[in-house]
């Protein structure tokens, strides 16, 4: 059975593309056949995070406008051969792909893949419509800050109006700040959004490092964010995985930070 999931947020910069890349690699590690579709036409990034930029020949725009079949545009991952990327164009803009064209592509892919993950652009305009139309359900990514939560609320309203099932990922949590009461905690976020949460990802410097190297943190054994993404992948596959409490810095670690490393 094929599952089509759109990863969206409303606000930009909360970690949609990072989440898409990590879930894609995570599902591929479990042996699933996965395709990631970048719909952020004009501002594509997903290829960078996967280290596949130099292999792109055709794009989503070419497929939508029927210049090539989707199979010709797919880029296979270097390490995980059951993971594919359908990149988008960096030169075209968002209206280059109509929602109906996207729906047709996704329908065609369903027979071939276990999971189709769609990376949605920020905003609520046509790019959003195109990304969401073919999805069975949606993952809304947000950060524990008031503006990201507000925009998530907006996007959830839109998704619910289209009768999409939605699950939440809270990204870039800083456990120490939550503990100190200077960052929104899960209870306050749940108060506003009241959605099923399938992931709480801590802020992790390794995410930046991994993006630069094109190797998502989900495969890094020593990354806290990577571990959180592995749990999310398990939950998507239907496993019951409890949420682990975050490790906050001990007194000595904080002291070390104060006096430099």
């Amino acid at each position: 059975m094929s599952e089509v999931i759109v990863i969206t947020s409303g606000k930009g910069g909360v970690g949609k593309t990072t989440t898409t890349a990590n879930l894609g690699v995570g599902l591929a590690i479990r042996g699933k056949k996965v395709v990631l579709i970048d719909t952020d036409t004009g501002l594509r990034n997903l290829d960078l995070l996967l280290g596949l930029e130099r292999r792109i020949v055709y794009t989503l725009v070419d497929v939508a406008q029927k210049r090539v079949n989707y199979g010709q545009a797919l880029v296979r991952h270097k390490k995980y051969t059951n993971l594919f990327l359908l990149p988008t164009s960096q030169v075209a803009d968002k209206d280059a792909v109509e929602p109906e064209q996207m729906l047709e592509i996704v329908q065609a892919m369903k027979t071939e893949f276990d999971y189709i993950l769609i990376d949605c652009p920020a905003g609520i305009e046509q790019g959003y419509e195109t990304a969401v139309i073919g999805a069975d359900w949606a993952i809304v990514v947000t950060n524990p800050e008031i503006s990201a939560v507000r925009d998530a609320d907006r996007i959830i309203g839109k998704l619910q109006a289209e009768n999409k099932k939605i699950k939440l990922i809270v990204n870039r949590i800083r456990p120490q700040m939550v503990k100190d009461g200077t960052m929104l905690d899960m209870t306050s976020i749940d108060d506003i959004l009241s959605l099923e949460c399938i992931g709480q990802v801590p802020d992790d410097d390794k995410v930046v490092d991994s993006a630069n190297r094109g190797m998502p943190v989900v495969e890094w054994k020593d990354s806290a964010a990577g571990a959180a993404y592995r749990d999310i992948v398990g939950r998507i596959c239907g496993e019951e995985i409890p949420f682990k409490p975050f490790e906050t810095e001990s007194f000595w670690q904080r002291l070390k930070h104060v006096f430099g490393h």
């Binding site: 609520i124 507000r150 925009d151 609320d153 907006r154 959830i156 309203g157 839109k158 619910q160 009241s194």
Partner: peptide, 8 residues
Amino acid sequence: NRTVRSGQ
């Protein structure tokens, strides 16, 4: 009969 969200 539902929560009215931001923008609605």
